[in-house]
Amino acid sequence: MTGPAFARLLRGALPALSLALLLGAIFYLQPRTMSYFGLNLLLNLAVPIALATVAQMLILTVNDLDLSIGSYVSLTACIAATWLRDTPLLGLLALGGGVLAYGALGALIHLRNLPSIVVTLGMSFVWLGLAILVLPTPGGKAPDIVRALMTWKPPYVPFPIIACVVIAALAHVALMRSPYGAVLRGAGGNPRAVARAGWSLLRVKVTMYMAAGFVGALAGIALVGLTTSADANIALRYTLLSIAGAILGGSEFVGGRVSPIGAVIGAITLTLAASFLSFLRLNPDFQIGAQGAILILVLALRALIGRAEKDR
């Protein structure tokens, strides 16, 4: 195996290795988690985070960043807990409108060559405002089907694991294995070459933003299924979590290098980091700090590998 390919393999394995390490440590500290019930509890919240992270990763693929995903997930959670339950048609229309709005944002950013950071920053206010309008005070109730799905107890394998595998597999097939997926990623790696081969970069961007809007909406619905009720601030921290998770999972900021499987693993790792600390009997206040520390550690390891690669 050649040097750079080995380094890439190592870098690719980094997310999985850190997850395995963390999981091992948790099992060691708290053997009871090594059960159907324990895993279910540990990983429950990973499902919406994994979806939000995949959404963020889709935006990262085309060299943009979405600072509004957290408030968007909040909004879709609020819609799911109110309209989707009471008047399903209206709920679906509203969620579809969100997806279309994402597509329009992609078009705006591409056509006017705007920095995605500021546009999505502005949108984060808009989504949050809409969420408050939909659900002024915490409350609502998850639609029964969603609730039933999220609390489903399939035999042998806990539901969160199945859900994460399905999410990772679908995203992987769509982005890494489909013929158009190659074009989408290529547009992140060398947009000029993709345009020169006759593809529309506008279409690429709109596709990616709409896909992100769709997956983000799923994250909101899944979240409500777990918490049963919603509030407008329910997922605000998902913005930072999703960026951290995608980066942890091996996605890069520019150049269209992304990994859907890695993104899901990154999201699970961040979810577990919190539990890990509580099992260490450390102050739960360190939760966020641990997530940050893991992020820095992984980035440092990646930088080291990158440097070794360069020194050859």
């Binding site: 206010f125 989504w127 949050l128 405002g129 809409l130 309008l133």
Partner: peptide, 12 residues
């Protein structure tokens, strides 16, 4: 809610 929506639209 309206305030936030307006703020966002103004930024954009």
């Amino acid at each position: 809610g309206v305030r936030l929506v307006l703020t966002g639209l103004i930024i954009i």
